[in-house]
Amino acid sequence: MFETLLPACAKVVVAKDWMWNTPVFQEEEAFIERAVEKRRREFRASRHSAHEALSVFEHNDFRLLPGGGRAPQWPAGIVGAVTHTGQFCAVAIAAAQECRGLGIDAEQNSPLSDELKQMICTPSEQAWVTEQEAAGKLWVSKLIFSAKESVHKVYYPLNQYTLDFLDAELVIDLAACSFHARILKPVVNASVPIHSLKGRFFVDDQLVYSAIFYANEPI
């Protein structure tokens, strides 16, 4: 699905069944030696998917290790993002000369609890969610959560700063399957000042998907 949300220059790999339980490189396995089974499965699926994607860019046998904030440390000249939920895992990467930042996220198609809505959504977003849920679109709160996760995956690697969910506010165009994120509280003296980001989304019966391609040049 992410292939339809991102430009053709981005390579997307969805984890295959064998990837979840097959050990990865020794250096990568060291990071999950004491992890619970769920974490080991997700980590292996994401690394095998990343290895396949990176091979397209001739980065064969690259060890994709976690860095600050547990974010993957991609090889020089590559930007990328990982997402996993339930039995779904995907990786998207692109050349840095075309893309400054890349964010993808997939979430289960179910509404957030009222408590989480207050933690994730600004007052204007909460009002919009209430209106849309009354019309039967029960997944819109999860869409906001997913889109803000994609915002984080673009913003953090560029600025080494974690935005709070309430530090960004979304305007969502349901008809166009797109969203615009305005950064309300950017980090002071940001390495890469970002005031807004645009993304796309898709929803099916199982999952809510969001993606942001922050281009170096207009695509």
Rank of each mutant, 00 (worst) to 15 (best):
18 W>H: 13
19 M>T: 08
20 W>R: 08
20 W>N: 10
21 N>W: 05
21 N>S: 14
21 N>L: 12
23 P>Y: 01
24 V>Q: 01
25 F>Y: 13
25 F>W: 10
26 Q>E: 15
26 Q>P: 00
28 E>Q: 06
28 E>D: 06
28 E>I: 03
30 A>G: 01
31 F>V: 03
31 F>D: 10
31 F>N: 12
32 I>T: 12
32 I>S: 09
32 I>V: 15
33 E>R: 15
35 A>F: 04
35 A>V: 05
36 V>N: 14
37 E>L: 15
38 K>D: 06
39 R>C: 04
39 R>S: 05
41 R>S: 10
41 R>C: 06
41 R>F: 00
43 F>D: 07
43 F>C: 05
46 S>D: 02
46 S>P: 00
47 R>H: 09
48 H>I: 02
48 H>T: 01
48 H>W: 15
51 H>D: 00
52 E>Q: 13
53 A>H: 00
53 A>C: 02
54 L>E: 07
54 L>V: 11
56 V>I: 12
56 V>D: 09
56 V>N: 03
56 V>Y: 13
58 E>R: 14
59 H>Y: 14
60 N>Q: 12
61 D>W: 02
62 F>H: 12
64 L>H: 02
65 L>K: 11
65 L>T: 12
65 L>N: 09
67 G>D: 07
68 G>D: 13
68 G>V: 11
68 G>W: 02
70 R>D: 13
72 P>T: 10
72 P>Q: 08
72 P>A: 09
78 I>D: 05
79 V>M: 03
80 G>S: 06
82 V>I: 15
82 V>K: 03
82 V>N: 11
83 T>I: 00
85 T>A: 01
86 G>P: 02
87 Q>C: 05
87 Q>R: 13
87 Q>D: 15
88 F>Q: 04
90 A>Y: 03
90 A>E: 04
91 V>R: 01
92 A>T: 06
92 A>K: 04
92 A>M: 08
92 A>P: 04
94 A>N: 09
94 A>W: 02
95 A>T: 13
96 A>C: 11
96 A>P: 01
96 A>Q: 15
96 A>R: 13
100 R>Y: 07
100 R>A: 13
101 G>N: 04
102 L>H: 03
102 L>A: 05
102 L>D: 02
105 D>K: 07
106 A>N: 06
106 A>R: 05
106 A>F: 07
111 P>S: 08
112 L>V: 04
112 L>Y: 03
112 L>C: 10
113 S>P: 10
113 S>E: 12
114 D>K: 12
114 D>T: 12
114 D>S: 13
114 D>I: 09
115 E>K: 14
115 E>T: 13
116 L>N: 14
117 K>W: 00
117 K>M: 15
117 K>Y: 02
118 Q>L: 14
118 Q>T: 14
119 M>G: 04
120 I>L: 04
120 I>Q: 01
121 C>D: 07
125 E>A: 07
125 E>D: 09
129 V>C: 12
133 E>F: 00
135 A>Y: 10
135 A>F: 08
136 G>T: 07
138 L>I: 10
138 L>C: 09
138 L>R: 14
140 V>Q: 01
140 V>M: 08
140 V>D: 00
140 V>R: 01
